[in-house]
Amino acid sequence: MVADNVKRVGRGVLDFLLPPRCPSCGTRIADDGHLCGTCWGEMAMITAPMCGLCGLPFAAGDLDGAECGACMREPPEFDWARAAVVYDDRAKSLILGLKYGGIGSGVPALGRMMAGSIAREAKPDLIIPVPLHSRRLLMRRFNQSQLLAKTLATNLSLPLEAFALERRKATPSQGTLNRKSRKRNVAGAFRVTADGKQAIAGKSVLLVDDVLTTGATASACAKALKRSGASHVGLVVFARVKHPSAG
């Protein structure tokens, strides 16, 4: 009882000195790990109809679960992908704040939205984040996909294999590349570790990343996982680019 009272007093002092703020707009909020009501209301949630493979949102009235043109031309290596929201200015501010500003207070909220986006999918056996190359990890000091994966693992009560997959090639940024160039850029960039092979053998894997554009990085990861024994690879991201680069 005394310890609980001390914790409450300590938290009250901390909230007074450093009040919780919305990770998107900076407005004061009641508790960390949430968005303010305005930012939450402005999130462009992805709901059906959508592509059955890559989760690309379709226009109202389109057939839910059908494949988009890109997936029909070249199916991804992962079995399905889902995203919580459309990658618009609001989602972009959260992702950039996390990746480059170190604003991690929004991770629990992002994780909850991601968990909701895969509620209809079969429950996987374990969770693996898309890894960063060691050089980039040293510069950034953390892997945003691993933070999201950890939150998802807690929400879904699933084991997290944070280091089963590694990025063995330091590839240039995908940002300015078209679809074909992105695929070439990450070809052979990922491999499963020795311990990872034991963990994923015959298992259904949920791959976690922050943003999905063309799916090149996720496909390269899924290919490595399946070659090393994973039976199934699903993908969940926080945000989905609605109009991926062509070419």
Rank of each mutant, 00 (worst) to 15 (best):
V211A: 05
I127D: 00
E161T: 09
K197F: 02
A84I: 02
F58G: 06
V192I: 07
L126F: 06
A199T: 02
S105E: 13
A66L: 14
A115H: 06
A218Y: 00
C25K: 09
A122G: 13
K169E: 08
P129K: 04
T217F: 01
G52W: 02
P19M: 01
G10N: 09
L148C: 06
I46E: 01
W40L: 11
I103Q: 09
E74D: 14
K169C: 10
R11Y: 11
S117T: 00
H232T: 04
A109N: 05
G106Y: 04
V208E: 00
G188A: 10
A81N: 06
Q198R: 14
L14T: 07
C68A: 06
P75M: 03
N143L: 03
T193Q: 10
A3G: 15
Q146S: 12
L212R: 11
P76L: 01
A187N: 15
M113V: 06
R120G: 13
L14D: 13
K99H: 10
L35H: 03
P131N: 08
L225Y: 00
G229N: 04
R182P: 05
R167L: 01
P49Y: 03
G229I: 00
A187Y: 12
V6Y: 14
S157G: 08
L132N: 09
A149H: 07
L212Y: 03
M45C: 12
D64I: 06
R182G: 02
P159K: 07
P244E: 03
D210V: 00
A60P: 15
D88F: 02
A149D: 10
F163C: 14
C54S: 03
K242Q: 12
A162W: 08
A81H: 02
A119P: 13
V107S: 04
G10R: 12
K223H: 14
N185R: 12
H243C: 14
A122S: 11
C51S: 07
D4G: 15
D209H: 02
L225E: 00
S173H: 14
V6K: 15
M43F: 08
P57Y: 00
E161M: 12
P129C: 05
V241G: 12
T176Q: 15
A194I: 08
L53W: 05
L56A: 07
C71S: 07
P129Q: 05
V2T: 11
V13H: 12
V192H: 02
L63S: 12
E77V: 03
S173T: 10
R135E: 15
L152T: 00
R182M: 03
P20S: 12
K223E: 13
G102F: 08
D209E: 09
I103Y: 10
K169V: 08
E67W: 12
K92C: 12
V237M: 04
A83D: 07
K226S: 01
R82P: 08
F238R: 07
